[in-house]
Every structure is written in C-alpha cells, then in structure tokens.
C-alpha cells in the first residue's frame, strides 16, 4: 500500500512512492451530476508545510477537500495519506468544515463540540474523565476561547465559532489539518488567532492545508499554494507557483495584477 500505480503518457504503468506525503491525490475527478466539478486532479502535499488551495468561486476547492477526506466519493482517481489508504490513517487527520454547513441552533455547548474531537479516544461507551475535560480546556485556551466553554454555540460570533471548530481539530492531536475557508467571515482578531495556531502546528512539524479566498494574505500566511479551476492550475512553493501568470490562468482576466509585489 505504499505505492500508487500510475499510467504514463505512453500507457506504461509506473509505481510512485508517496509515503512521505501526508496527502496525495492522483487523477481525482468528482461530479455531483452530469459534469465533473473537479477533473483529473493530481495534488501532492508536502509534510510540515502550510498549503493554500486557491481558485475562483465554483472552481471546486471545497469539493476537492471533501474528496480528499472521503466525504464525497470521487468518480475516478485515488487518494492516499502517507502512502496508505485514508481509512487506515483517520486518527491522524483533523478537519475544520465551513461554518455555513452547521445548524447553529443545535442544542450543544462549546465544551461538547470540542469533546467530539476526542471521539476516537472515547469510542462508544468510555467514560469522560478529568483528563478529557482538561484536554478540552487546553485546546480552548489555545484558541483563546476558554471563557466560553459553557456557551451554547449559537450565542457565539462567527469568528468565535470558527475558533471552537479549530479547538475541536486540535483535540484530536492529528498530524494533518484540513480547513475549509477558515477565514471566511471572521473578524481580524480571530484571523490572527487562527493563523498563529496554524503556524505553531506547522512549526511542530504538522501539515496544514486550507481552502483560502483572500489572495492578499497568501504570501504572509502560507508556504505553498495549490491553484485549481476545475483542473489543477499550478502547485508549488509560494515563490514559484503564486505568480501573476498562474493567477491569470486560474482566475482569467487581469485579477491578481498589482497583488504580487515581487512579480513586477
């Protein structure tokens, strides 16, 4: 399970060793109906880096993330995590979904949401012990939400909700963190708090992948970019791949002009 069989241009099968990559996609195509939303995408995430998935609205960013996580079943292609199958590595993967996908009137408190991050440890019946409560508070403290543990989640601001979701991911002590637009609709204080935590994770050797919207912060926040507009439009370090040419190709038109100072 450490190698992926691939067909080259002349039809020969070759093997590729992907054990070093926390997340790799090969030829992934996803469709909700009659046409592919994501078409034959290859992506190789490098360990210990922060990668931004960027692209225009409807380009398939969130879909790609969901396919990588097995939430949507791809029509074709395969996903490997550290060279193995997704199911064998679940415990090492944490996910922060889009805020919009949640019913915020659901009867649950901040503490319970973070406790969900411990599900793999608690299982069906194991009792919640003092050490689990301590873990929850530690994660809430890390995102600056320790004073809100007993709030109903609907009473939080958008930014606070996002931080609680990040705390839930932290509780898992995962090695790979996948975030779907973590900065969408949050206040500046939250954005700063989240990026601080994400950079800390990266510095601890963890891998972070985020769907990202704001092109102006890509260079400050991330090491690597993955550009997508239904197809893979580019991938690499921010210096090499986040260029005006690549943005023109991805977004069309003249978007991105003046955005990248060093490109001039």
């Amino acid at each position: 399970m450490t190698a992926v069989e691939l067909a080259t241009d002349n039809g020969q099968m070759v093997s590729e060793n992907l054990t070093g990559s926390p997340l790799a996609l090969r030829g992934v195509t996803v469709s909700y109906g009659s046409e592919p939303v994501v078409f034959s995408v290859d992506m190789t995430i490098e360990a210990g880096t922060m990668t931004a998935i960027i692209g225009p609205n409807g380009a398939g960013k969130s879909t790609l993330l969901k396919a990588a996580l097995g939430i949507i079943k791809p029509l074709a292609g395969r996903v490997t995590t550290w060279g193995g199958s997704l199911d064998s590595q679940r415990a090492r993967i944490a996910y922060v979904p889009q805020r919009a996908s949640i019913d915020w009137d659901f009867p649950t408190q901040v503490r319970d949401v973070v406790m969900m991050g411990l599900f793999r440890e608690l299982g069906l019946l194991r009792r919640v012990r003092a050490k689990h409560h301590a873990k929850v508070m530690e994660c809430l403290t890390r995102v600056g939400m320790q004073d809100f543990a007993d709030r109903q989640i609907g009473q939080l601001s958008g930014g606070q909700q996002q931080r609680v979701f990040l705390a839930r991911a932290l509780a898992q002590e995962a090695d790979l963190y996948l975030l779907d637009e973590p900065f969408a609709g949050v206040d500046a204080a939250t954005e700063a708090a989240i990026i601080t935590v994400l950079k800390e994770l990266r510095n601890e050797g963890k891998t972070v992948v985020a769907v990202h919207h704001d092109l102006s912060t890509v260079e400050d926040y991330f090491d690597r970019v993955f550009l997508i507009n239904r197809r893979r439009m580019g991938e690499g370090s921010v210096e090499a791949a986040f260029t005006q040419d690549a943005l023109h190709a991805t977004y069309g038109g003249r978007l991105g002009d003046g955005l990248i100072a060093r490109a001039g």
Binding site: K66, L69, R90, Y95, F106, V113, M116, R120, L122
Partner: peptide
C-alpha cells in the same frame, strides 16, 4: 449509539472524517 448519532446529527461531514 448516542455519541455517533449525535455527531452525525450535528456535523455529518466531521463525523465521516472521524471514520
């Protein structure tokens, strides 16, 4: 089944990622 049922009800995608 209370834990998995609650996780599924609250956040289906996250529950799936948890396996």
């Amino acid at each position: 089944l209370r834990r998995p049922m609650l996780m599924t009800a609250f956040d289906e995608g996250y529950a799936q990622v948890q396996g």
